[in-house]
Nucleic acid binder design. Structure first.
Lengths: 120, 120
DNA sequence: GCGTTATTTCGATCTTTTTAGAAATACCGT
DNA sequence: ACGGTATTTCTAAAAAGATCGAAATAACGC
């Protein structure tokens, strides 16, 4: 991921309504939410939210799909992952020992749930 | 971490010069860099960089310490970690199965470098 | 104290972003 | 084709951010 692309994504998330919108969409994965319903949930006018959603879409953090009368928005977790990776690689860059604790602290966030039998 | 705090941090990183500055400071951990040297590296006027650094400092992403005539800036990895965790928790929120692949993809970023004898 | 070096604060200008009313577009059922 | 619902685009005004010259502050050596 390029620096420029990262700035676009970070800027898209760096606004209260948009961050809230993105978080809400993440919570509604993989179904997504129609624009109008999201506007109701966040209590912002539809056209205002529409502008925010277009910023998120330009940053490729959300996708939209028309479903009859509604336009359903979904979080694009793949792009989100790219951003996270970009930031953390940054952190690691050359010096894994500095980044290791950061990564380690992220583990409990998602219990691995592998087939492995634990390390005990 | 609160939504508002996250927005502050994201906004601080969502600007090319600042993102570059932060990345550079991360690379210079744990020694840090004097403001002037950073300005030279990034090729921006000192007062412009100073303004950017104050934004990063307000977001607690960097710390500064006077060392004789210079003011040495350092990346605050603890805060960075909080931001990363906030975003990823977001992603996980309630639905670990959605977030798991994201976290998994972050692993190779920092080779654990444990006492293990490699896997070959 | 004075000149020098390192950095920040002030001030002014320019650009970008946010916001939301009003109009336009798209879809659907009848 | 029409009326209703869902959403976006247009437009304009207000707010926030970026940039940088010039002046101010802080620390040092002499």
């Amino acid at each position: 991921m390029e620096n420029e692309e990262a700035v676009l994504a970070l800027a898209a998330l760096a606004q209260p309504t948009r961050l809230q919108a993105f978080r809400t969409l993440v919570q509604h994965e993989p179904d997504g939410l129609p624009a109008g319903e999201l506007a109701r949930l966040l209590e912002v006018p539809q056209n205002t939210l529409s502008a925010h959603l277009s910023v998120l879409a330009r940053a490729d953090l959300v996708t939209s799909e028309r479903r009859s009368r509604s336009i359903v928005y979904r979080a694009n977790l793949a792009e989100f992952q790219k951003v996270a990776l970009f930031l953390l690689q940054d952190c690691c860059g050359g010096r894994p020992e500095i980044c290791a604790p950061v990564i380690e602290s992220l583990q409990p966030c998602c219990p691995p749930k592998r087939k492995e039998r634990s390390r005990a």
